[in-house]
Design a protein around this nucleic acid. Structure first.
Lengths: 211, 211
DNA sequence: ATAATAAATATTGTATACATATATTGCTAA
DNA sequence: TTAGCAATATATGTATACAATATTTATTAT
């Protein structure tokens, strides 16, 4: 694994866990000193993180960690509400028993206590990805994957602060059940509800924090 | 304007205009020799173009210009069909007369004969952006902007090969008319039709070329 | 005192050079 | 003859050094 790759994961993690100050300009040299690497991998990583929504440019120089914004969370969820059912719809008829078994395995892993926020987020996405991949629509899939990725910024609140995991898991199992029965309409309904509810709680929480 | 920025525009243009071979590995050194710059800006640009869908990685080394694929065009359009009406819906109540005037100006510019493919694509996006920006939903807007950007790869076929401009312009004017009358439902309907029709023609064309 | 301009400082952009990783070719052994 | 391994060549990853650009501060003129 390259230095850049390690640095990428490290910085993303540090943003997630609030180990880097929000809203202030990040200097390449600061980071290169902090992480003991040269400025080149720092540059690469910052550019990538900027594209992925983890950092935002300020004026002409410097990047900052943008504050969490209710509206961003809302928009991300909104897009997921519209796009993910499409992907699920394409995937459902093609889903193999193996894929469904894998999805179930992931859910059971998610049931284990003591998962870190990062692990939880990763497993959550793996579950969804498992159901979407058989659609074989790479472009659509990639966009949805990006949306999930960006949602990752907010998942900390979500699963830890709000202890939403139980409800979420319940919906996951319901979704998987509908999928197994090839009940497209019901599966889509549950999925939309799953995304929407999580969004509502999160957005309300963000509003209460901000105001 | 930095070397990187100029190089970015140049290479994107060269991809659009088929001045770079499709499907073969692009070497950093080749490009750095071709464009008379060092490998660093080449690296930056290639990474950016990869993220934006203009290039695709092959194995562990090298990037290539992916061939045009009907399914990608279909997916991009599908996402636009679902997301753009949302944005238009949010924007419509907030749209100022100034913004609508600007939109009209852009349409009149689009009517001018002799526009290059790149100019046409740019103006087309400006028109849509003009209607979407007042929504003040930056996250949603950015995603839609990216989708348009990626559609740019296919616009060459679209407006030049297929001479679709007249129909497209007609729909643009209809859309603007509905917007002026604040007829949200009709505006959304026209927009969906606008995206869908263009998509259908393009996809059919791509299929006929591929098969 | 304030605004504008110029100089100085700090930060990022770019190039050259080197290290590392990957791929390809040729050789040896089965 | 072919498969596997090693060695060489080639491409990319990373660092150090330098250039350009932006920002801030200080000075001068109004």
């Amino acid at each position: 694994m390259s230095i850049t790759e390690k640095l990428y994961l490290q910085i993303k993690q540090d943003i997630r866990d609030n180990r880097l100050a929000i809203g202030v300009a990040l200097r390449q040299e600061e980071l290169s000193a902090r992480y003991k690497v040269s400025r080149i991998p720092v540059r690469d990583v910052m550019q990538r993180l900027k594209n992925e929504g983890w950092l935002r440019g300020i004026g002409k120089v410097g990047l900052m960690i943008p504050p969490l914004e209710a509206q961003e969370a809302e928009d991300l969820s909104l897009m997921r509400v519209y796009l993910e059912p499409l992907l699920l719809g394409f995937a459902l008829p093609k889903l193999s028993n193996q894929a469904m078994g894998q999805a179930e395995d992931i859910l059971q892993t998610l049931d284990r206590p003591g998962l870190s926020v990062a692990e939880h987020g990763e497993l959550n996405w793996q579950f969804h990805a498992c159901l979407y991949l058989p659609a074989e629509r790479p472009t659509l899939f990639t966009t949805v994957a990006n949306l999930h990725q960006q949602c990752g910024k907010y998942i900390g609140f979500h699963s830890v602060t709000l202890n939403y995991t139980e409800v979420s898991q319940q919906q996951h199992y319901q979704l998987l059940d509908a999928v197994k029965k090839r009940d497209t309409a019901r599966a889509k309904r549950i999925l939309v509800q799953h995304i929407q509810e999580a969004s509502d709680i999160l957005v309300a929480h963000l509003h209460s924090v901000t105001s």
